[in-house]
C-alpha cells in the first residue's frame, strides 16, 4: 500500500491565523521531511477566492518542491481541472513532469463551489461532461504531434503540445470525488484511477463507491485503475492526546470550514454562520476520520486496504495547522503505522 501525505492548502484560518509567506516556507520543509520519513507521495489541495488564502495554484508549488526532493511523488489533490483551459493544463503538467523527472501523479477534480465557477466566468452546470472532455484532450494531445478536437465545451484545430510529458503517454490520471456515485462511475468509465474523499462518508458508503467504480469500468469494458481513500487522521501515543488534538485543533478548524463552505443550511436554505457544537454533522465527521493510537489507526486503514484500496491519503494538516505538531504527528505515523503495511517502496 502507498501513503500520500497531505493535504496542504497553505490556509490561514481564523482559528489559527499565520502569515502566508510562513506557510509557503513550511510546506517546503514538510515535503523534504515527508520524503525522508518514507511517505510515497506529497499532496496539496486547491480552492479559489477563499478568505483564508487557500492555495489556488498547485503546480508552481509542486515545481518548487520537485527541486528539493528526489523520489517522493508529487500530487495536486485535487487540481480543479474544469476551471482551467485544458491545453494550458496539458502544457503545464508536461513542464512539471519534466521538472520532477516523472514524479507527477495527476489527481484531478471537478470542483464544486459555485463561487469558483462564477469567479472564473464559468457555469457549474455540466462540469462532469466538461471533465470527460478534458481527459479526452489530455490523452489526445500527449500522444500526437498534432491534435484537433471538437467538443461541447472545448474545440481547437491542429494544436501541437510541447513538450510531451516525461511519463508516457501521461502522468497517472486520477479523479477525486466525494460521496457522489456519478463521480465514481465516471472515473470507472474513463478508465482512470479513483480517489474517494471519505470525509463525512460512512465506511459502508466508501465500500459502495469503490464497488460502483469497478462496476462502471467493467460495464464500459475498460481496465480499472487504482483506488485511494483520503480522510483526516489524528494519531497520538495515548487516547488523551488524541482527544486533545480533536478538541483543540480538529473540531475548531472544521467548525470554521463548515461555515465558510456553506455546507450547513437552515430550514430556509440559508447557510448557517454559527454551528452549535451538538450539531449532528460533527459526529458524522468524527466517524469518517481515522483517529486514535497507532494500533487503532492501523486497524482502520487495514479495513480500507481490505476494500481493495491501493493508496491511503492521511490528511494530517486539516486537523492541525501548527507546523511543529504536524511534523510530530507525521513522524509518529511514519514510525508506527507505515511499517505495518507492505510497501512498494521503502524509506
Amino acid at each position: 500500500m502507498e501513503f500520500w501525505l497531505g493535504l496542504y492548502g497553505m490556509q490561514s484560518p481564523r482559528t489559527f491565523p499565520r502569515s502566508v509567506p510562513y506557510l509557503y516556507r513550511a510546506v517546503m520543509e514538510h515535503a523534504v521531511e515527508a520524503e525522508r520519513l518514507g511517505y510515497d507521495g506529497f499532496a496539496l489541495t486547491e480552492h479559489h477566492f477563499w478568505y483564508d488564502s487557500y492555495c489556488p495554484s498547485l503546480l508552481p508549488v509542486l515545481a518548487a518542491i520537485a527541486q528539493r526532493t528526489k523520489t517522493i511523488r508529487l500530487l495536486p489533490c485535487a487540481l480543479l481541472a474544469t476551471l482551467r483551459n485544458p491545453l494550458r493544463l496539458a502544457e503545464e503538467i508536461a513542464v512539471l513532469d519534466h521538472l520532477s523527472r516523472g514524479r507527477l501523479t495527476l489527481m484531478l477534480g471537478y470542483g464544486y463551489r459555485s463561487e469558483e465557477f462564477e469567479g472564473f466566468g464559468l457555469g457549474k452546470q455540466g462540469r462532469g461532461s466538461r471533465f470527460s472532455e478534458i481527459i479526452e484532450i489530455l490523452r489526445l494531445t500527449s500522444g500526437r504531434q498534432e491534435a484537433s478536437f471538437s467538443g461541447e465545451y472545448y474545440s481547437f484545430d491542429g494544436v501541437s503540445i510541447h513538450p510531451k510529458p516525461l511519463q508516457q503517454p501521461n502522468p497517472p490520471l486520477w479523479l477525486a470525488g466525494g460521496g457522489q456515485t456519478a463521480t465514481a462511475r465516471r472515473a470507472g468509465r474513463l478508465g482512470i484511477s479513483y480517489c474517494v474523499a471519505a470525509v463525512s462518508q460512512p465506511f459502508e458508503r466508501v465500500k459502495e463507491l469503490i464497488a460502483e467504480y469497478h462496476d462502471a469500468a467493467a460495464q464500459a469494458n475498460v481496465a480499472p485503475g487504482q483506488v485511494a481513500v483520503a480522510t483526516d487522521v489524528a494519531v497520538a501515543e495515548t487516547q488523551d492526546e488524541v482527544d486533545r488534538i480533536v478538541a483543540e485543533d480538529l473540531l475548531p478548524v472544521y467548525a470554521e470550514q463548515l461555515v465558510s463552505f456553506g455546507f450547513i443550511r437552515d430550514e430556509q436554505g440559508n447557510p448557517v454562520t454559527e454551528i452549535p457544537p451538538e450539531h449532528p454533522i460533527f459526529q458524522v465527521l468524527m466517524d469518517s476520520f481515522v483517529l486514535g493510537t497507532p494500533d487503532e489507526v492501523t486497524e482502520r486503514i487495514q479495513a480500507f486496504r481490505e476494500l481493495g484500496c491501493d493508496v491511503f491519503v492521511p490528511r494530517l494538516v486539516e486537523a492541525n495547522f501548527r507546523s511543529d505538531r504536524i511534523l510530530r504527528e507525521m513522524r509518529l505515523f511514519a514510525d508506527t503505522v507505515l511499517p505495518r503495511f507492505q510497501r512498494r517502496t521503502g524509506p
Binding site: 515545481a63 520537485a66 491545453l87 502544457e91 503545464e92 513542464v95 521538472l99 503540445i161 513538450p163
Partner: peptide, 22 residues
C-alpha cells in the same frame, strides 16, 4: 511560447517556481 515544436517551456511560471527553490 505555446504550441511550437522545439520549445521546452510553455509555462514560465512553473519553471520560475523551480528556480525559486534553487
Amino acid at each position: 511560447s505555446y504550441f511550437s515544436a522545439g520549445v521546452a517551456c510553455p509555462s514560465a511560471i512553473t519553471l520560475g517556481a523551480a528556480v525559486a527553490a534553487t
